[in-house]
Each structure stands twice: as C-alpha cells, then as structure tokens.
Nucleic acid binder design. Structure first.
Lengths: 219, 219
DNA sequence: TTTTGATGCAATTTCAAAATTTTGTATGCT
DNA sequence: AGCATACAAAATTTTGAAATTGCATCAAAA
C-alpha cells in the first residue's frame, strides 16, 4: 500500500527553490519582513521547516537574519550594488581567464550554444519591444551564458561563489523600474565576450566583461 | 528578582562559536560524523538547536550536509586544497591591491601593529622550538595580519568571502602531522608582504602573497 | 506636550516526542 | 558459500506546543 502524499504539500528543497525564485525576481519588497507563520500557512509545513529554509537563504545572501527579530528580504543600497558589481567583475574575469586557459573544444561548443539561445531571446525582445513576457526565459539564458563562460575554470569554489553573487546581483537588479533598456543593450556585449573568449584573448575578454557589468552600477 | 541562567548552558551563538573553533582546529577527524544526539548531550540543548548550528556551519563550508544522512566534518582532498589555495590567493591579492589603493596612514599603522604581534609570536616559536603551546595565539595573530592587510579594500563582500575561505583553508591545514616547519618559515614571508604593502608596490605584494600561500599546496 | 514606564499582543525560539528514513544484522534461499 | 531479503536498532527529520523575547499601544508624570 503506497502512501500518497498530498499534492499541495511541498518538501524542504521545493520550498527553498520557490522562495529563492521569488526573492531573485523581486516578489518581496526590499527589507520586507518574512514571517514564519505566514509562510508556514502558505506552504503547509511547520514553522521550523520555514526557519531552516530561511537560514539557508540568509547564508546565500538573499535574506537578512537578526537574532530574535526574524528574517527580512535583503535591503539594497548604493554601496552594496557597487560592491556586488565589483566583486562579480573580479570573479567573472578570473573565471573566464581560467576557462580560456583550460577549456577544450567541448567548452567552446557549450559557450556557443548558450550564446545562441541567449541572442535568440534578446532578438525576440528587440522585435516585440517588450521584455516582460520572456523575462524568466531570458533570465535563465543569461545565467547559462555567464556560468558556461566560467565553467571550465576548474575551481568549484570560484563557480559556487560566482553563483551566490550572481543571485544577489539579480535580486537587486530586477527591482528597477524599467528593465527594457537594460536588456536590449546587452546583445552586442554578450557577443563581444563570446568572440574574445573563443579567440582566447584574455585581456580583451576581461575588458568586455568589465564593460558589460560595470554599466549596471548606479552612478 | 534577577533570573540566573545556568552557567553550563550555552545559547545558540555560543554553541556555534565553540563548534566552529573545534572544527578549524581539527578536533574532529575529516569526514567524522557529527551526531545530533551526542552534541545535544554535550551542550545540553535540544537536537533542533544543534541542527540549526550545523546548518550554519555547513553554509560556512566547514561541515558537509547530506539529506537524511546528517552532518559530517568536511572531508579534504588534494583538489580541494588546491582550489582553496588558488581562490585564497585571488582574494588576498585583490584585497591587498585595493587596500594599497585606498588605505590611509591609519591602515598602515594597523597593519604594522598586526605584523609586530605576529612576528613576536613567531620569534617565540623559533626560540622555544615548539609551536603547540602558542598555537591558538599564533592562529589569531595570523588571521589578524591577513585580515588587516585587506581591511581597507572597501568591499565587505570580498572580506566576508575571504574569511570563509580562510577558515576552510585552516581547517585542512591544522590536520597535518608536523606544523612546526610550516610556522617558522613564515616569518620572512610575512615581513616581505608587509614591506611591499607599505611601499604600495602592488605587483611585488601580489608576488609575495602568491609565494606565501602557494607553498601550502600539497604537491 | 514630551517622555517614561507598564501592560498586552505578536512573533520568534526552544523543546520533547512522534514519524520517517537509513543502517546494521541475521536469516533464508539459490 | 554467496547473495538477497526482511527485520531490528539507531539516527534524522518533522511536528505542535510552550516559553521566551521584542514591539506597540496607552496611561501617567514631568
């Protein structure tokens, strides 16, 4: 007799993924309180499970935790955005350099493929003039491209850290009012990065990565 | 009527600190199982509190967690040691460079002071021929020096990440059989780093940081 | 009118036990 | 004798409730 678990009931990893997604797509306001009790009712689990998930998210940098005061969606600030950008540039430049040193033809193929998908979506955005309807798709494709770029670096630590920073970066980015201008300007930059990477021109690739990321900074 | 809390009973942060200290000073074998029940009895708290602490330590990279299989002290490997070393070099080089660019006279003073304390302890080790009796002292002083070196980098993210990597690095280092040779050879290297930093010679300082850290790699 | 203190409420944190899962061992079958 | 299966023991995970802590509202005094 197989036990049937309720369809609406989610286990811990699923709850983590759902909250993670909501946080990086700005479905919570910055600094908004994340009440255990509310979330417990939404996900149909106990307060302790929620607590565990929120702890994990707090070490992922998406949630701020204060002893005896619970959890909040992480607040943003100009300094923090600057910090995130600079740190991301450092990691992506180093990861890309290492990938160019170690990457084989297989890596080149994966990078080409990732860029192809990304540019297709970016073209779609440009044609239709709106970005909202493909935002999740675009978001995934952009991550794929950047992650593939550094995927041959042979450093799990660098890659894990980069993912953490990327998510935090994204959490702050999506809260902006107009994303459209941001998205369409990326087409050329992504291609420039791709071409420099395939040419194994480390200095040029670093330059393009810097340009691509640095303009996200609020000035 | 003031409530007196039992002296032996530790709260969550204290338990975290104690376990953290034990992990980075190799009081657990690599891969050793960390049983909730045992720890619960030692610290006199519930299994849930232990679980929470172990979760935090696992995101700090000191403890490995497997779903339904509990927690273990993190295992080491040659690849991981190499990765930790290379990543630490990257962060410390960048942090030192930024500190040299932004640091004021106050930073120079703090760095000098940290080096003075460190070299004093290192001299003590060299004279007495043994390292065990000052190991906690030395360990703190070494951390102080490296943290001060990057403390003017103006990047909280870089500094936090560096601390995580430093702790993981240390966790693996202290498990070696003979630490003595390691410690005494550091005197010159620390001074070289200090002098290059004070001279604001970024390239030289990066070179010394690389040499200092790279020789820890198992070859 | 402003500040200070007390009281009630809400949220967080801890606890002890039940439920689920894994691990180790012994027994039966090939 | 070797392998697989089933049972028993141990450990992890979840649960629901109790206890502690923080927050806000309101009253009283300066």
């Amino acid at each position: 007799m197989a036990k049937i678990t309720t369809a609406t009931k989610l286990d811990t990893p699923a709850i983590y993924d759902d909250l993670h997604r909501k946080l990086v797509t700005a479905q919570f306001n910055h600094g908004e309180k994340l009440k255990s009790e509310e979330l417990r009712q939404i996900y149909g689990c106990s307060a302790n499970t929620i607590r565990e998930v929120l702890f994990r998210l707090s070490t992922a940098g998406l949630v701020a935790f204060e002893e005896q005061r619970g959890f909040r969606a992480r607040r943003t600030s100009r300094e923090r955005q600057h910090d995130l950008t600079q740190f991301r540039i450092l990691l992506e430049q180093e990861g890309a350099s290492l990938s160019m040193q170690h990457g084989d033809i297989e890596w080149e193929a994966r990078l080409s493929a990732a860029h192809h998908k990304l540019s297709h979506i970016e073209g779609e955005v440009r044609r239709s003039g709106t970005v909202q309807h493909v935002l999740p798709l675009w978001s995934n494709a952009e991550w794929e491209f950047h992650d593939t770029l550094i995927s041959a670096c042979r450093s799990p630590l660098l890659r894990e850290t980069y993912k953490m920073i990327y998510d935090q970066f994204r959490q702050q980015l999506v809260s902006r009012e107009s994303n459209y201008g941001y998205f369409v300007d990326n087409v050329e930059e992504h291609r420039a990065i791709l071409e420099a990477a395939l040419a194994r021109d480390e200095a040029l690739c670093r330059q393009h990565i810097h340009d691509h990321l640095a303009r996200n900074m609020i000035s």
